[in-house]
Design a protein around this nucleic acid. Structure first.
Lengths: 240, 240
DNA sequence: GTTTCATTCATACGTTCGTTTGAATTTGGC
DNA sequence: GCCAAATTCAAACGAACGTATGAATGAAAC
């Protein structure tokens, strides 16, 4: 059997089973059986189960975060020094997660795994997170900061965190998403999910900025509510 | 040892370990050791590991959802037929999750478990979800529907789902929350978390309603964007 | 004091776990 | 065709898993 083929088959099978059952519950025997390879092949190619998980995740996360940053670069280039529209920034953050769902052949299982990852206690994953997500998050935060006047740094990170939360929750819930929502919400339409998440994040960030501004200028007699502020001026809705 | 004491000690220990390590990774031996009880006590009191999980969850979820509904009832009574303010509804949805964190002595671990639950593949949990969350979600959806003029049913459920997602993600991330956010976001201030999540959900729902309204009346020459609309002027549009 | 019933206990059952081993097999360079 | 390295294989390792069992223990009921 081709050398690279076994590796890839293991990664595919592990991705599917990790996503469906979680790291601890997916046994190496189930993975290798699903992949149609020998049990010892995993230890030969990946040494350990935990390192296999890291590799499964890395294979998808690296391209996703690369595309996120590429989109962000493109937006900043187009903006030519002016602030980038908030919606565009958030779309660049959200959309790449779903890119491989339709693209890759067996990539449909990864979003669910991605959603589940934050809960996994493997400490090597924690390190992996900081390495793979840290800089990307900081770059998006910096861009967002300039996109929304009046938004403080903590507001930006909360926005990105909450956006990630919405994303992960939908991804993780999978088919069960419709259970508590009378079948209204489904997790199979990437376009719709992206649209909803981006809308919420844009509105939330804008609202945070508005209430922060109001906090500053509360001596002025403007009406004080916690409701979202005006629409941010987004002209050309740059979706990709 | 007191009869009820053993049960409670097992529930506490299981809650902590399930939250920290996940269902599959937390062994019965670790749980009973942590609880300081005999291994067989779990099977005596709960029959099976999966039923133990259900009981751990039920102990916290039932009071939480009861308080959610009580708050909602109170709001509707106060509103006397008028729509309930959106922010109040969402606060009633979010805040009770954190109530036991400060209240109960060992309850600090449950939010993280709650966040993790959506990923657990135990099929008995799926049934449990529909039973414990289904009606509550529908009641909140119905109230929200009347609170935000122009919001369609799917928008309401998406809002509640995304709000749940933000909540679960923060809860699940626990101490790791600050990792990718330059230490800005922390998961230990219930007040702050509630405030952020509610703000985002209010803004998002309002924005959804605004874009839905605009969709309807797009023949009129008003400016069309997908950005969030004004704050909803909750007028007394009597419903029901 | 004896009976009764609920609870706790030490121990063992049969599986399954992640990993290792060493021999077989395939592969690629000469 | 041959050697050496890379890969696959069947089999087994010790440990840990969830659960079951039957005897010990405790506290009320009589």
């Amino acid at each position: 059997m081709d050398r690279c083929l076994t590796r890839e088959r293991i990664l595919d099978a592990a991705e599917r089973l990790f996503a469906e059952q979680g790291f601890a519950a997916a046994s190496m025997r189930a993975i290798t059986h699903e992949a149609g390879v020998n049990l010892a092949a995993v230890n030969y190619h990946f040494v350990t189960k935990e390192k296999l998980l890291i590799e499964v995740v890395r294979r998808r996360v690296v391209p996703i975060n690369r595309e996120r940053l590429e989109r962000l670069d493109r937006l900043e280039t187009e903006a030519r020094g002016r602030p980038v529209p908030v919606e565009a920034v958030l779309t660049a953050f959200v959309a790449p997660v779903f890119a491989l769902r339709t693209g890759e052949p067996g990539g449909g299982h990864f979003p669910r795994l991605l959603g589940r990852l934050y809960g996994e206690p493997a400490e090597s994953l924690t390190r992996f997170y900081e390495e793979e997500f840290g800089e990307m998050m900081r770059r998006f935060a910096a861009t967002l900061q300039r996109s929304i006047p009046g938004l403080e740094p903590s507001g930006v990170f909360w926005g990105l965190t909450l956006a990630t939360g919405m994303l992960c929750h939908i991804l993780m819930a999978g088919d069960r998403l419709g259970l508590c929502t009378a079948g209204v919400c489904r997790a199979d339409d990437a376009e719709e999910i992206t649209q909803h998440v981006v809308r919420f994040a844009v509105a939330g960030l804008t609202s945070s900025a508005a209430s922060a501004r109001q906090e500053v200028s509360k001596t002025r007699g403007r009406r004080a509510t916690t409701s979202p502020g005006r629409a941010p001026r987004i002209r050309k809705r740059t979706g990709r």
